[in-house]
Amino acid sequence: MSGFSIYLIFFLIIALNYGIMGLGLNLQWGYTGLFNAGVVGFYAIGAYGAAILVGPDRDYLIGGFDLPWPVAILGGMALAALAALIVGLATLRLREEYLAIATFGIALSLQLVALNFESLTGGANGLVGLPRPLFHLFEDSTTYNLFFLGLVIVILGIVWFGLELAVRSPWGRLLRAVREDESAARSLGKNITLIRLQVFVLGCSLIGLSGGLYVAFIGFVSPTDFLPLLTFQVWAMLIVGGSGNNAGAVLGAVVVWALWTMSGLAISRVAPVELQSQAGAIQVMLIGLLIVAMLIFRPRGLIGEKTGGS
């Protein structure tokens, strides 16, 4: 297998995992209009939840339950859902921009908790030595990555299929009603707060699932993984791909992540060695430029929401 295809497998694992996160955010923003600016916080809960459940027992840590991976990832999801329930009950009465500020603050606090709650999260050193699921069954890392890519695709497929069913159901139509005109939906006797809470919890548990998968693949977790920038990246993915469309959310994840990473590869190929230390800045500008250009030419995203209702 050529070097590029080996890399491509690796790239797709990460990108499609962001796709799962994008689907969670799309359910919240694209379908229901909930401005979740704390994506990275729930991603962190899913990731740390899984890492603590799966990690080996250590004297200096509270966690380390040595549980099998599927249990750990589901546990991480459940913790993210629980956190979303608590956050949701407290904040979902807030209108869009206030919800955004509240969730953003919560994500920042969660990162600080991860940094400071040493006996649970390992603090700044993170949690090391996490086993990678089924790694011993494979002879080399490339076949393992191929297996992991398959796993991510299957999980993404299940999430996708479930969400497509959900948004086409009467419940899904209700989401759009809440997004478009809350008062009208309320006047029809719908419990808006309950709907918003359901969507928030479901979306956040998908974001948590993505966090758990990330840890399973990388085998390490530390607070550096959960900088606020990640929230912005996922939002860029959703907007570029097309919010309100599940295919758009996944496509956006792949396209934006490709721009983000492969622009660096392209620059390192063309820039002479002496200028490489400046090339990083060019890359960041290029990413911004491409995202802006895409929004100018495709304001509804690459694949926007289908108009005309369902």
């Binding site: 690796f10 790239f11 990460i14 990388i218 530390s222 550096t224 993984d225 900088l227 920038l229 990640l230 983000w260 990473t261 660096g264 590869l265 390192s268 060695v273 490489q276 230390s277 090339a279 990083g280 890359q283 960041v284």
Partner: peptide, 15 residues
């Protein structure tokens, strides 16, 4: 060949 990690692990790992 020098690559930038932008101060974030996900970009660094990919690079």
């Amino acid at each position: 060949v020098l690559r930038d990690d932008q101060g974030t692990p996900n970009v660094g790992v990919d690079a």
